[in-house]
Amino acid sequence: MKLSTIGLPVEESEVIIVELNILLSNYQIYYQSLRGLHWNIRGRRFFDLHIKFEELYNDSQLKIDLIAERVLTLGGRPLHTFEDYIKFNQLTVGKNISNDEKAIQLIVDSLSQLLKNERNILDKASQINDEGTNSMMSDFIVEQEKTIWMMKAWLEESL
């Protein structure tokens, strides 16, 4: 078994690189949807949601960079074209959403899909003792589970 310079099996790392690039694509779509929500939100909750959506897209931008850098650390190349992002996207694209409940539901749905991707990566990375990827995915998961809980509380739904 060939090991990389960071001590991980090369072949198995390539599988994780593919999954991280899919996650990266989904995050880019999520980020753009959040920008659209930030710009287009209307109504009495505008001020609160406008600020919240900015907070979420800034956080997503940081995560996008972390994912791309992890791909590079593992010896891969991060996807970086809109063509690739659209090709690998698994999220609903938020287009022209100005209603508060539809906006929050889009966030819940998007984060739920991102969690599926992250758990898949976590499982694969665990199998090869890729603690760097595991740690990143674990941090993302904990934060997103809490965000989903808060968004669903806002929607007055139960988990």
Results as ranks from 00 to 15, higher is better:
K2N: 11
L3K: 04
L3I: 08
S4R: 08
T5K: 13
T5C: 07
T5E: 14
I6A: 04
I6W: 10
G7V: 12
L8C: 00
P9V: 02
P9L: 05
P9K: 13
E11I: 03
E12S: 10
S13V: 08
S13R: 07
E14H: 12
V15Q: 09
I16P: 01
I17G: 01
E19N: 09
L20V: 03
L20T: 04
L20W: 04
L20I: 08
N21P: 05
N21M: 08
I22A: 06
L23W: 06
L24W: 06
S25C: 05
N26R: 03
N26C: 02
Y27A: 00
Y27T: 00
Y31C: 01
Y31W: 11
Q32M: 07
Q32F: 06
L34A: 06
G36M: 11
H38T: 00
H38F: 09
N40T: 11
R44N: 12
R45K: 15
F47A: 11
D48H: 12
D48I: 10
D48Q: 12
L49C: 03
K52Q: 09
F53Q: 06
F53S: 00
Y57V: 13
N58T: 13
N58W: 09
D59H: 07
D59M: 13
D59S: 06
Q61Y: 07
L62N: 00
L62Y: 01
L62C: 03
K63Q: 15
I64H: 14
I64Q: 07
I64S: 10
I64R: 10
L66I: 06
L66E: 15
R70D: 02
V71A: 01
L72R: 14
L72Y: 13
L72Q: 15
T73V: 14
L74F: 08
L74A: 00
G75N: 03
G76W: 01
G76V: 03
R77A: 05
P78K: 14
L79D: 06
L79T: 15
H80G: 15
T81A: 01
T81E: 10
F82T: 01
F88E: 10
N89P: 02
V93K: 14
G94F: 03
N96D: 15
N96P: 01
I97A: 09
S98T: 03
N99T: 10
N99Q: 15
D100N: 14
D100S: 15
K102C: 11
K102I: 05
K102P: 05
I104T: 13
I104D: 10
Q105D: 12
I107P: 06
V108E: 10
D109G: 05
D109N: 14
L111G: 05
S112I: 07
S112Y: 04
L115I: 14
K116R: 07
K116E: 12
N117K: 09
R119L: 07
I121Q: 04
I121N: 00
D123H: 09
K124T: 02
K124Y: 00
K124E: 11
S126K: 09
Q127P: 08
Q127V: 08
I128Y: 05
D130R: 09
D130W: 04
E131H: 05
G132D: 12
G132F: 13
G132V: 13
T133G: 01
T133W: 06
N134C: 10
S135E: 13
M136Y: 14
M136R: 11
S138H: 04
D139L: 13
D139G: 11
E143F: 06
Q144F: 08
E145L: 04
W149L: 02
W149G: 02
M150G: 01
M151A: 15
K152C: 03
A153V: 14
L155D: 07
E156G: 07
S158I: 08
